[in-house]
């Protein structure tokens, strides 16, 4: 049984032309998946569907063999899926560790030493204490990306979704981020799904799922 399964998925915006059509695919634990394709192929739309931010207009998405429509979409997002957005989507009035803590609280998981755990997670993505207490807008792009990763993995979701996680990063930082994802999949048994244009990232993935643009 796959962790996440797409059954004949189609999606269109406001009843207009389909962005993706009749997509079938399955994702397993412990693997890194790269979703590639040309611009407009529907990569980000697929990521939105997988994260529960929107629902397919046709077909079904099964999580542990349960249609995610039957799961509260807020619970699904806060507990089972960790999303790393292309523009990070961190809260600027909070510092790094507070952003991580916020997600931990949103998941509803009881964590005795939440602050300490958040700091440890940040260290795992190579952010030390001084960076942990720094406001988001005072961090570099790479550091913000790490905070976004730390936030996504803080409540230990089974699926980690990343939208162009290396798009704005230099090659050295890009390698570091990719190694973090590989570690999460191979060492922690997470299902890591990365939407990317980068051939380097795609090459590092265990499987590549290429979305062809609709004619």
């Amino acid at each position: 049984m796959s962790l996440l399964e797409l059954n004949n998925i189609s999606y269109n915006y406001d009843g207009k032309k389909n962005v993706i059509k009749n997509v079938n695919y399955s994702f397993d634990k412990g693997k890194v998946y790269a979703i590639t394709g040309r611009s407009g192929a529907g990569k980000t739309t697929l990521l939105s569907l997988l994260s529960g931010l929107t629902a397919p207009t046709q077909g079904e998405i099964l999580f542990n063999n349960v249609n995610i429509k039957k799961i509260n979409k807020y619970d699904f997002r806060s507990r089972y899926v960790g999303v790393i957005f292309q523009s990070f989507n961190l809260l600027p009035h909070l510092n790094s560790v507070e952003n991580v803590e916020l997600s931990m609280r949103a998941s509803g998981k009881k964590t005795p030493n939440r602050r300490q755990n958040a700091e440890e997670i940040l260290k795992k993505v190579c952010l030390d204490d001084s960076l942990a207490k720094r406001r988001i807008l005072k961090l570099s792009g790479g550091e913000q990306q790490r905070v976004a990763i730390a936030r996504a993995i803080s409540y230990e979701p089974e699926i980690i979704l990343a939208d162009e996680p290396t798009g704005n990063l230099d090659s050295a930082t890009q390698d570091e981020i990719v190694s973090i994802f590989k570690s999460l999949a191979h060492n922690d048994g997470k299902c890591v799904i990365i939407v990317t244009h980068s051939p380097v990232v795609a090459k590092a993935a265990d499987e590549i799922f290429e979305l062809a643009p609709l004619k």
Partner: peptide, 8 residues
Amino acid sequence: GVLTAIGI
């Protein structure tokens, strides 16, 4: 948007 996206 961010708060609801992370599941709040």
